[in-house]
Design a protein around this nucleic acid. Sequence first.
DNA 1: GTCTATAGACGGATAGAC
DNA 2: GTCTATCCGTCTATAGAC
Lengths: 200, 200
Amino acid sequence: MGTATTRTSSARVEARRAQTRRDILDSAWRLAADSGLEALSLREIAASLSMQAPSLYSYFPSKAAILDALFIDGYRVLDDVLAAVDEILRAWIGFCQADQARYRLLFTNAVPGWAPSTDAYSASLANYQHLCTQLAHAGVTDPDDIDLCTALSAGLVAQQMANDPDGDRWARRIDDVVDMYLQHTASRARRAARLRKGNS
Amino acid sequence: MGTATTRTSSARVEARRAQTRRDILDSAWRLAADSGLEALSLREIAASLSMQAPSLYSYFPSKAAILDALFIDGYRVLDDVLAAVDEILRAWIGFCQADQARYRLLFTNAVPGWAPSTDAYSASLANYQHLCTQLAHAGVTDPDDIDLCTALSAGLVAQQMANDPDGDRWARRIDDVVDMYLQHTASRARRAARLRKGNS
DNA sequence: GTCTATAGACGGATAGAC
DNA sequence: GTCTATCCGTCTATAGAC
């Protein structure tokens, strides 16, 4: 029937439109990364796709709408990354709070005259490796940044366990801390990239 | 002598020029804080001083020169603040590393069955108050931000003492951590200010 | 030193032909 | 849908009168 044909055709057209919208956003991300967000102009976006600026208005009603779409894009990725790192920290603090004795054995030098054997210590190293893998997924690979993460985690846990063992005075700030940490590592990575670019 | 008069006069003129330059920069800071750095325009700066835009060219050769002067301004303040907070953290880690036993007594629950008396504990509270005062000088007053600071410090010290007691693997990252921390608290403060403004 | 007037570039957005 | 042509705004910066 004609109706069916029309429906199929409009679905195809719709998919094509969606793809072009995606292309516009991808180009915009690339241009913003290259030349800065301020330099992002409709003419530039259009040119990078071999289009003319007014044609973009077939896909987005305004430049603000494009920026809105980019904004939503960005938060989708951020949410994923934050969830992953948050999860580790939250799980860790929960683990510590669940059993004070266990916490003290594993993470503080609480037993006089005792230190873990090489074998025992390797268990904690495996845990450390696991953390490194998770951090790599969040884009953190610099050894200095990993040290910073362990310090941050250790600090949160220590303060929580020492001053508010059954509450959440520090634990409730995990989101905030992860946000701070990732923002910092990302800006360090950007600085490093700029230096590499400048020296080449 | 005429020479002396001329010299005095030109010194006075020079002082007047310097003051106007200062006024321009102060107005620029205020406008940038109010309306955003991107919205900073020569017309706006001039208007805020009841001048016309071209007159600014008598004091600065270009807009870039004004931004340069602001940049230098900003770093002078930043350096002062960083030095103050850095100093505390650095001194604290040095204090801990100087005497392992003292560190363990003061900052870890290292002695089984013992906890400080109320009197003894008040000594540590005084130290905490001192930290709060110093943080206030750096613009940090939010209780949550203070908790974050103690967690950061405790984490750095704990990692340093546990894993590299005689080295500086974590201590050498103090600058970086203070930078991260102050940037984070400042951006939280900005967000809060924006909310207050939006709701009023 | 300060002004008016304006050059010259670039931005977003719209009209209308095809 | 895509184009050309164009409007209108804002910006930095300069020329030249006073």
